[in-house]
Design a binder for these strands. Structure first.
Lengths: 139, 139
DNA sequence: TGAATAAGGGACATTGATATCCCCTATCGA
DNA sequence: TCGATAGGGGATATCAATGTCCCTTATTCA
């Protein structure tokens, strides 16, 4: 599977939040329901993302979550890393074999793409797609 | 984690086989040892890949595995799909929500990249890298 | 032909990701 | 100030990915 389920849920939640008016607080249960995601599990993910500073949260009535930054400033990699830990994007070379092998090359290309792609890049979909270029810059 | 461990192992094994003289048979244990991969587990993966026709296998003494095609003809996606099943690359839209949402967009971009990238593309690494362009074609 | 070899394939153990639940804490509004 | 609300966080259950083992089958070679 390309990207873990946790990453998928987090990205879907971010896409949902990106559609709201900026600063509007939406509670986890609402997001889960509207986006079709497992509620309790999503709540945990959002808590993690709040600790990392990617979303802002408020407790109590009329509380909820909202994006901490403009969707154009949020790159997908930061979401994935916040959810899966950095190990997911950094390739650990176990033994001092070839320092940069083919796998590392492939992996870092994908990581670079995720880093250069913003939430806004993929949210304006449905019509003729938003942006081009971006990747194919590294290597 | 970007791509499962199984996919990583399979791709590493393919990269190893791609370095051999074409048609040369290498046994699973040898590949695992040289590439630093878990032996028994890799053997299972290679069996799967043999069934899917991506590698050819021979039993008995002087047996082993070899690539079924030229590394330039093997795209990474085919390896990933053979190991993880097609479910990994096809996004199942659970409910008839928005047919093409942002997640689907992102996911299919990565899948397209994997499909357009060959084994040869990533194996010529270590020097100045081999090819460019490729991605950024879809969307 | 038979002994050694290596893949094929099933059974099982282990680990980590995924998912749910419950109670605590902070906050809002009456 | 009190009750309701919503996130914070720990404990636990479930399930799939990962990893190991063992026996079978096919093949080679002496």
């Amino acid at each position: 599977m390309i990207l873990s389920r946790s990453s998928e849920y987090a990205i879907r939640a971010f896409l949902y939040l990106a559609k709201q008016e900026p600063g509007r607080l939406v509670m986890a249960r609402q997001i889960a329901e509207d986006a079709g995601l497992p509620g309790h599990f999503l709540a945990k993910l959002l808590q993690q993302l709040a600790r990392k500073g990617l979303v802002r949260s408020n407790k109590g009535p009329s509380g909820g979550f909202t994006l901490a930054n403009d969707p154009r400033q949020i790159n997908i990699l930061s979401i994935v890393e916040a959810v899966e830990g950095i190990e997911g994007s950094t390739v650990e070379v176990p033994s001092p074999r070839t320092a940069t092998d083919g796998w590392t090359t492939l992996h870092s290309r994908i990581v670079d793409y995720l880093e250069q792609t913003s939430l806004a890049d993929i949210s304006k979909t449905g019509n003729g797609s938003a942006r081009k270029r971006k990747a194919a810059k590294n290597n």
